[in-house]
Each structure stands twice: as C-alpha cells, then as structure tokens.
Amino acid sequence: MKSLLIPLTKLHPSDRTAMYALLESHFQGITWQAFQTDLDRKNWVLLLKDETSNILKGFSTLMFCQTSFSDQKISVVYSGDTIVDPSAWSSVALPRTWIAAVNYLRQQYAENQLYWLLICSGFRTYRFLPTFWKEFYPRYNKDTPVLIENLMVSLAQEYYGDRYDKPTGIVRFKSPQILRDGLIEIPKGRQTNPHIHFFTTKNPGYRFGDELVCLTEICYENLTDAGQRMWEAESALEFVQDSVLI
C-alpha cells in the first residue's frame, strides 16, 4: 500500500473525485457539496493507494492547527472524513501512516502539547483509540478528568459550534453520514467487547450518524506497544513534490 500525506492546496482534482466516490460507496447521505465544504476546512489529506493499480483504497482528512486553552498554546489535530475500503481492512496502512503523519506534522510545533479531537459514528473508528492509545476519553473503565472534559468541550464548541451537544458529548450534523448496511452492523461476538459496548451505550444514535466526541494526547508516552511500533515506522518518510510519501 502506498501512502501520501498531501497539503490540501496540492490535492489533485482527480483525487478529490476518487475520495468522494469511495466515501459515497460506504456512507449514505453523502453529497458533493457537503464533502467539498468539509474538506475545505482541513489542511492535510492522507491517501492510501494500491501500489500496483494506484486505485484509492482509503483516506483521512486532517486539520492541524494551534489554539489556546487555560492561557496556554496547544496544538490540535481535528479528524475529518476517514474511510478504508473493506478490501484493505487486513492492512495496517491507515493506523501506521496516520500516526507517522501526525508525528511528522507535530514537529512544526514541537513546543506545544498536541491533542487529537476525534468524532466517531462507527465502532471501528472508536476502537482505534484503545488499540493505539493508553489514555483517551471517554472510556468505559475510567471517568473523564475534569481538565480533559473542559478541554474536550472547549475544542468541540470551537470547531463544531451548535452542532455539538455538551450534555451528551455528541455532534449531530444536519445531513449526517450513515454507514451503509453491511458496514454499520457489529459482527457477532464483538458486542460484548467492553470498548464497543461502551461506544454503543454512550452513542446510541450511531446508526443515525450521531458522532461521539473523543480526545487523546498525542505523544510517544501515551501510545500502547502497538502504537509505538506505528510511531517508530515514521522513519520511512520521504519528501515527494511538496507532499510526504509514507
């Protein structure tokens, strides 16, 4: 799998079209205008392509920025649309390259703490957190610390405005993206997984496109063993025409 980290300003129109087609084939409620509007709020795009055919197999959009909280500057990564075609589910390309890409970007603001604000309407996205991060919130086995809760609320309100419901921690879009049949169902036997059970309990409207707001700090010390292996794979970074080949 070939992975490219591309500044939004350098994204080729054909890649935009391929991204939209891949997203629309997996989600209901997708429109070209809404896709473009969300994409234009981001500043980086991670593309996963088949090395032989060059066909797009997955992507993730990112907003990497700075803001202030409690009179301190912090760096934040906001996740946008993210999808991997089922034919590539057995590959670790997305987590490996996503972690490597964020590690690359954070070096521009190395003096700041870096947080990842993630919204999840699917259990597979939420499972990314316990697989690769030690401390993340909300979670089933630990209350969210007050400071983290306040930070999560502040960032969600700043980015999502009135679409964010503070009491539930849920973002609801006017035109939500809903996973298609066959992708939204939780496989038999996995419903009892404590993380998945927590996600469906905390976000009961996930089937209708409700998004659960989550937060974790991005630093090496907060990675699980699996996450640290992905982080260390960052050594494969190469510059390719203002983009980064991972």
Rank of each mutant, 00 (worst) to 15 (best):
G80L: 09
Y20N: 05
M152S: 14
M63C: 13
T144C: 15
P95F: 11
Q28M: 05
Y115K: 06
F27C: 07
L11W: 13
S175A: 09
G80I: 04
V92T: 13
K174M: 07
T61E: 15
N141Y: 08
F132G: 07
V92Q: 08
D181E: 11
L8Y: 12
P95Y: 07
K174W: 00
L62K: 15
L5E: 02
D162V: 02
I186W: 04
L48A: 06
L62T: 07
H12K: 14
T97Y: 15
I55G: 04
S91E: 13
T17Q: 12
F198C: 06
V84Y: 04
I184E: 02
K10E: 15
I148E: 10
Y206P: 03
T144G: 02
P204W: 07
T9E: 14
K73W: 15
V213M: 09
T37R: 13
A226T: 03
I178P: 04
I196W: 03
R139T: 06
E234I: 04
S60R: 10
T37D: 14
Q36M: 10
Y20S: 00
Q191M: 02
Q191F: 03
L8T: 10
D50E: 11
E51L: 05
R127I: 00
K10Y: 15
M230S: 14
T125V: 11
I6W: 10
F199P: 01
T37F: 09
D242G: 06
F27N: 00
A21M: 11
V244K: 02
L179A: 05
S75C: 02
T61G: 13
E185V: 02
E149D: 10
G205M: 05
T200D: 06
K2H: 03
L118G: 07
T67M: 14
L223P: 00
N103V: 01
N54E: 14
Y104V: 06
N150R: 12
H26V: 01
K49M: 09
T216I: 04
D40A: 01
T82V: 07
P7F: 09
K166C: 01
T9R: 11
I184Q: 04
I184W: 06
W44G: 04
P95R: 11
E221S: 11
D210S: 13
K202Q: 13
V244A: 12
G58Y: 13
K134E: 06
V240Q: 13
I170R: 00
A34M: 14
K142P: 00
F64Y: 15
F239Q: 13
T17I: 04
